[in-house]
Write a protein that binds this DNA or RNA. Structure first.
Length: 339
DNA sequence: AAGATGAGCAACCGCGCGGAG
DNA sequence: CCTCCGCGCGGTTGCTCATCT
């Protein structure tokens, strides 16, 4: 049994709004407001429209201070940064751009900005990527990497997409200092370009990777939102999963988070040869409960659900990482490594 | 000149969430 | 608690206009 329709479909007009309808709706709302009930509004305003249609028309077109026309470079940057950080949460992105609507931004992204960025990728990818991890941008794997033999039932999936943010000196949306919750954004981005390597035609959880200085940061999941376990909004969660908490310093990146299903990241990381330096060290942690293990960070539940690497700190070597991942029948959701 | 194709954008659809009862 | 229902959101559709062949 399906959901009951929000209105009588047979008796409502659909399609483009006429100037008369626009003025009726505008006049009514300016006079009486929405009354907190969009469903009842069209009848009161004398419109043969669905309440949802009225709401959309008002929000996207009729309400005051709506900005139409070209997006500025600054707006482009904000959209790119936020998309890289939180994905297609258009309403949140729109909240950072006064006068712009989520629909506008969504259309702009889908029709122009995405292509613009792809152009940047195509023209800049060769000189900007270093050989050690350039293959992270390659096509999805067709077979599971050998290190996951025996666990391939959960380490491998054919559906994925990737996008990433590459910056020479990039300060991404730092949940610690600029909260999406309080509607402020600090995007002091300079020389920023956005890379997107989104596999054509594949659907699945969006994976993000960003570069902050010399570090790549990964996260994955669906239904991203901002949340906090301590009230300070220093974590971003995706659905019911807390993904990561970032702290930055001048020498490196520290990541704390929890979740599962980072198999694709791990897969690419190992399979594509980003681990070729056998001296690389990895570090593990879990949200809010990291302790210093003998070789670096390890989560209290012993699951490597956050993985980071810094070459000048104690950590696990590649073989230990493989062993841990294998032993725990699990993987991390974030991977941070220097490139 | 006319049909085909693509781009841009307004509007629709269906679902999840949360508040009210 | 549980159910219902409206709101808001993201994804998708379809119309219009521009460009290409």
């Amino acid at each position: 049994m399906g959901r009951a329709p929000c209105c009588d479909k047979a008796n409502v007009k659909k399609g483009p709004w006429s100037p008369e309808e626009d003025s009726k709706l505008k006049e009514y709302i300016e006079k009486f407001g929405t009354g907190g009930n969009w469903i009842a509004l069209p009848h009161k305003a004398g419109l043969k429209r669905c309440g949802k249609s009225c709401r959309l028309r008002w929000l996207n077109y009729l309400r005051p201070n709506i900005k139409h026309g070209e997006f500025s470079d600054d707006e482009d940057r904000i959209i790119c940064n936020l998309f890289a950080s939180i994905g297609s949460r258009w309403s949140i992105i729109a909240a950072q751009l006064p006068g712009r609507t989520d629909n506008d931004i969504k259309n702009y992204w889908n029709t122009k900005l995405k292509k613009k960025i792809m152009g940047v990728v195509n023209s800049s990818s060769h000189e900007q990527r270093k050989p050690s991890n350039s293959n992270l941008f390659q096509s999805p794997l067709q077979t599971p990497p050998s290190i996951f033999n025996g666990n391939s039932n959960f380490y491998y999936t054919q559906t994925r997409s990737f996008m990433g943010l590459l910056a020479d000196h990039h300060e991404s949306i730092n949940p610690k200092s600029s909260s999406l919750l309080n509607n402020t954004v600090s995007t002091t981005t300079t020389n920023t370009s956005l890379l997107q390597a989104q596999d054509q035609g594949l659907m699945g959880p969006m994976h993000h990777y960003q570069v902050k200085d010399n570090f790549l940061m990964f996260g994955s999941g669906d239904q991203p939102s901002c949340s906090s376990s301590d009230g300070s909004c220093n974590q971003i969660s995706y659905g019911n999963k807390e993904i990561h908490e970032y702290e930055y310093d001048t020498t490196g990146t520290r990541s704390v988070g929890s979740s599962t299903n980072c198999e694709m990241i791990m897969e690419n990381y190992f399979y594509n040869g980003a681990h070729e330096d056998q001296n690389q060290k990895f570090m593990f942690g879990a949200a809010g409960s990291c302790v210093n293990g003998p070789n670096g960070w390890i989560s209290t539940d012993q699951k490597p659900n956050v993985l980071s690497w810094e070459d000048n700190q104690l950590g696990f070597g590649l073989e230990e990482v493989k062993q841990l991942v294998s032993n725990n029948n699990n993987a991390c959701n974030n991977i941070i490594f220097k490139y």
